[in-house]
Computed example of a mutant assay.
Amino acid sequence: MAVKLGPNRYGKAQTRLVHVVKDGPVHHIRDVNVSTSLSGDMEAVHLTGDNAAVLPTDTQKNTVYAFAGRHGIGQIEEFALLLAGHFARSQPSIHHARVEIEEYAWRREGPHSFAREGGEVRTCVVHRDRDGRASVVSGLKDLVLLNSTGSEFHGYAVDEYTTLPPAADRVLATAVEARWRHTGGTSSYGSSYERVRRCLVEAFTGTHSRSLQQTLYAMGERALATCEEICEVRLTLPNKHHFAVDLSPFGLANDNEVFFAADRPYGLIEGSVLREDAPDAGFAWE
């Protein structure tokens, strides 16, 4: 039987890094989780155990810390591009670098005091190869949104196993995971993030929803219409079901005021919205 080595990569996952910038008595904090992956001429290490082409994952971890000390972090997309460019050029055997970063928000409570925010996590994935080609995908996850009305679900297909009653007025809730692909360089990844996030929230809150799929499309469409620097949005929307509780055994009516918030199982709606002329994604989503 003939076999061969397929696509592969290796790296250091979830290097935790907190960077404090001291501006006199006022400090600034960036809290990130960095994962690096490298690929290239790695046949020998897999087939014979020859490690000559392998840059140790511990070295990758050390590089993350050293670059934070030397360059700071700034916008996570810029830091990821810097790291990916370094790794793609650092060794002849490395042809491609992937850097993924999650950023955790802190709220200022004083000149050097902070409280951890409980909201969404900002994300990015950057690819860069030794020829200088690069892609940037920004995003967020765990953005929990809820509409207490303005949502319905009916007219769906039914079969012998269908028990779900039609809903003319329901709670619509989700924990948004969104990623968006940049068409090229942007003057500020930070301001781009804020604008895309605002579009996602405004579309969710402003759409009278007949399905979570409809809402997904409205969110992606709003972001693309507003933010020229992006060409594709991919969304993952778990349907966080809220079921009205039957209060009739207690002699009470329930006008969609008391709900049981179920955590599982849940519907999972996924989809992408992109410009008709969007350039080929290449390795951006890998």
Score class of each variant (00 low, 15 high):
T226Y: 03
T226K: 06
L212Y: 05
H241Q: 13
H95T: 10
V34N: 02
F260Q: 07
R210I: 08
A218N: 12
R16W: 02
R116F: 00
M219R: 04
A223P: 05
A175H: 05
K240Y: 02
V21W: 06
G24Q: 08
A173Y: 01
D142M: 01
L268W: 07
G132M: 03
E202M: 05
T149F: 06
V45T: 12
C231K: 01
A218R: 06
W285R: 10
L83P: 04
T226S: 15
E78Y: 02
S209A: 15
G118C: 06
Q14T: 08
L268N: 10
M42R: 04
V233C: 04
A52L: 14
P265L: 07
G49M: 03
G190L: 00
L83F: 10
G40I: 02
G271K: 07
R122W: 04
V273E: 03
K141H: 06
R197C: 11
G190Y: 04
D131Y: 13
R181C: 05
F153W: 15
A244I: 10
L164H: 12
V158G: 00
H86F: 15
E194N: 11
V258C: 14
E232A: 15
A261V: 07
R130P: 02
Y217F: 15
V3N: 04
H71L: 07
P25K: 10
R197I: 01
H127F: 00
G119C: 04
Q91D: 13
L55K: 09
P111K: 09
G74H: 11
D41T: 06
E120W: 01
T123I: 08
E117N: 08
P265G: 07
G185P: 03
A203Y: 07
H46P: 02
Y193N: 02
E100D: 12
A134Y: 00
E286F: 03
T207D: 05
F259P: 01
L212I: 15
G251Y: 05
I269C: 13
S138R: 00
L237T: 05
G185N: 04
T207E: 08
E103C: 08
V45I: 13
A244P: 14
A261I: 12
R234N: 11
L47G: 05
F250D: 09
Y266I: 08
A66I: 09
R197H: 15
N62R: 09
H46I: 04
K61Y: 10
T57E: 09
P25Q: 10
R128Y: 03
S272Q: 13
V34F: 00
H95Q: 14
P111D: 15
F87A: 06
L17A: 07
G119L: 01
Y266M: 14
R222W: 00
V20Y: 02
D23I: 06
T123G: 05
S138T: 07
S135M: 00
Y266Q: 14
A66D: 14
Q14Y: 04
R170N: 03
G11C: 11
H86E: 15
V26R: 09
D50W: 08
S93I: 04
R16A: 15
C231G: 08
L237F: 06
H241W: 01
